[in-house]
């Protein structure tokens, strides 16, 4: 399996998080690897990859904001829910996104991972925004979230 070039985030206001789109994998779909120095950074990077697949974020305004709170026992399931929430809101609210902030914490007493996130964007307007591909869903094909020597990474394939 070969991989593509590293693409720096263009999501406004976020620095230091990366993802790269994968080539020669699930040819009709979009695969990416996202990384971060913390779980929170990983969640921003992965969200940014999904957002960038749908739209050029710098072409999107800031008239719409949504707070997202999610909890899961497993961190990979929490990321899966988070990315699917973004895809869901795109259709249910007819919005695309400009910026994303995320804070992930682990409650060892409750054995739960918690996400507190904010999505900022605007209602879809093809005349003003540089729209790309309509992401249908996040798949579990080759799906993996792992931590190695302090770096978190996720391997994700989304259906488009």
């Amino acid at each position: 399996m070969s991989t593509g070039d590293i693409i720096l985030l263009s999501v406004v206001g976020d620095v230091g998080k990366t993802y790269r789109f994968l080539e020669e994998i699930a040819l009709a779909d979009v695969g990416f690897v996202a990384t971060g120095d913390s779980v929170s950074e990983l969640f921003v990077a992965a969200a940014s990859a999904v957002i960038e697949a749908m739209v050029n974020p710098v072409s999107v305004g800031t008239n719409w904001t949504r707070e997202v709170r999610l909890s899961q026992e497993q961190v990979d399931e929490l990321l899966f829910d988070w990315l699917n929430t973004i895809v869901f809101l795109k259709d249910a609210e007819a919005v695309v996104f400009r910026d994303v902030q995320a804070l992930v914490s682990y409650d060892s007493d409750a054995n739960l991972w918690h996400l507190s996130a904010t999505l900022i964007g605007d209602h879809i307007d093809a005349n003003r925004q540089e729209l790309r591909t309509d992401v249908k869903a996040v798949t579990k094909h080759l799906y993996e979230v792992k931590e190695k020597e302090g770096t978190w990474s996720a391997h994700v394939v989304v259906d488009v």
């Binding site: 699917n84 869901f88 259709d91 249908k136 996040v138 798949t139 579990k140 094909h141 259906d159």
Partner: peptide, 28 residues
């Protein structure tokens, strides 16, 4: 797309205790 997403999650949960093992999680 949402129906597929909903049931992938539900099938995964149901499969946990069933002993049904698949070679790709997307084959749940």
């Amino acid at each position: 797309h949402q129906v597929g997403t909903d049931y992938l999650r539900r099938f995964e949960q149901a499969a946990k205790g069933s002993g049904l093992v698949v070679k790709d999680r997307q084959l749940t």
